[in-house]
Write a protein that binds this DNA or RNA. Structure first.
Lengths: 121, 121
DNA sequence: CTGTATCCGGGCCGATACTG
DNA sequence: CAGTATCGGCCCGGATACAG
């Protein structure tokens, strides 16, 4: 569904490759709290369409971050949860959350757009 | 150059929005070590084209993560360095690096593709 | 050395409708 | 309830050439 690079030049590319999807960060943060059903996730991410949500979830699953548990009943019930690999991201996610909260107002404001000029080297 | 979302539903989106570019993670990791000139970055990221490298750097600059210092001389010399905001990402980047190194072999291998079925809820 | 300018293909993501 | 199917726009990122 999503082709991963075979070769990475730097380990951080692995993490970013896996976490950089429109909704993946929030999904992973939510799943740190507790397990979620498909519909619950859809409610939390109010503007996501079912197709895209499914895509994001499938990719996270393929990359081993989350698990999908199907309860065979009618109507169907599907629960998403973190795997141990996903849980190991918890600290990282928390730090990203913290940084984001701290700098939310700064991002994209061009607050340092003045050109800095230094003397000769 | 790159439009940022006005509203974020979750703080982690801010961080991901800023860090998710093809070369941004590696660039930020490199700059943790020391300052780099444009050409040095180009050498480290062997397959990047100057246009794309410039784009990535400009966006990081707009978002306040890095600073661009021009030495007015011939031939020109431009040095990129972390701002204090960029430095605050250091711990986060290190953790992403660590997770990536640990799970590089797992990612994209579909190692848990078997369907898990649970009993009735 | 440090970039711009131009062209362009592919993939991410959304809208909408339909299904077991 | 938890998804598929289909269509399509936009923008990211690469190729290539050129510039101060």
């Amino acid at each position: 569904m999503k082709e991963r690079k075979r070769k990475y030049f730097h380990p951080i590319e692995v993490t970013l490759d896996v976490v950089c999807g429109k909704w993946k960060g929030v999904i992973l943060c939510l799943l740190q709290e507790r397990d979620f059903r498909f519909g619950e996730l859809k409610d939390q991410l109010s503007s996501v369409t079912p197709k895209v949500l499914t895509q994001q979830l499938r990719e996270l699953e393929e990359d081993g971050l989350i698990a999908r548990t199907v309860y065979p009943q009618v109507p169907p019930k599907v629960v998403y949860s973190l795997t141990s690999y996903g849980k190991e991201l918890e600290e990282t996610l928390r730090m990203m959350e913290k940084w984001g909260r701290a700098h939310q107002k700064k991002v994209g404001e061009n607050y340092n757009k003045e050109v800095s000029e230094a003397g000769l080297s």
